[in-house]
Amino acid sequence: MKRLLAALALIACLPVAQAAGFDYRLAPRQIAPDTWVLEGAQEDFSFANGGRIVNTAFVVTDAGVVVIDSGPSRQYGEQTVAAIARATDKPIIKVWITHHHPDHFLGNQAFATRTLGALERTISDIAAEGKAFNENMYRLVGDAMRNTEVAVPTEALVPGIVEIGGHRFELLALDGHTAGDLAVFDHSTGVLFAGDLVFHDRTPTTPHATIARWLKSLDVLAALPFKQLVPGHGPVAADAGPIRQTRDYLKWLDALLTQSAAAGLDMTEVMRLPLPKVFRQMAVIDAEFPRSVSHLFPAAEEAALNTTSSHAKH
């Protein structure tokens, strides 16, 4: 019903929206020398937020601008380009996509194809799943997606140091949130762009997660000497708090699902388990927890069931 009302509300103001497009009201906030972050709302996708639930960023180097993630839609990408132009007259030379989830790469069309880079696995996952993600985003956020199509990154990024215009970037090829998660550490400013390996005060999402791998990746990030941490979702932090929070949640989730499967709980029962207060404070937990049960419980229950020897051959 809420969704229907939102849809009706949108229809009511359609003539205005049609003329003006969706205004994301992007307000880049400088968090370190040369470094700006575009912070998203700690919400689920909605018609009202147009998919702006993600943090994207840009670094203005002497050689040009490096963008981290292009956002959820073409219009978001275009408005990012406009916001960058207000901050600098330098050209955009690199757009690094952290992983293949739709809110992080569907703004790609706004940038020159040759500037788009991602890990090889991310490139192949965008090529394979991008179209379905894009269609789903139209359903979730509506007209803000107008004219958005999938633009697959062209440059396969390899882990290691990349020097650009006086900034010493370290590209880290990690995984666990998805099969390919890029983190970017700017040694020159001490800013770590963690992508969705780190969530902050916002419940982590798990549609392509492998928790054991994710925890390993968090250990790698925690060992970096960063001064500022830009999570994929949630506020920027000056300490490792968001890494700990993400790790605590994932460990709790993993243990809960394993224990529930071992105790013989059905999926519908697991989805309705009471949640600890510490996690109830994270945004959108009521939506994300059942989603995570749906993603991760089948493997846990499969492990808890005994295989029988005497099955009939056909």
Partner: peptide
């Protein structure tokens, strides 16, 4: 096909 796994609690 038709392989069964299960458990009793």
């Amino acid at each position: 096909l038709n392989e069964v796994s299960g458990r009793i609690w």
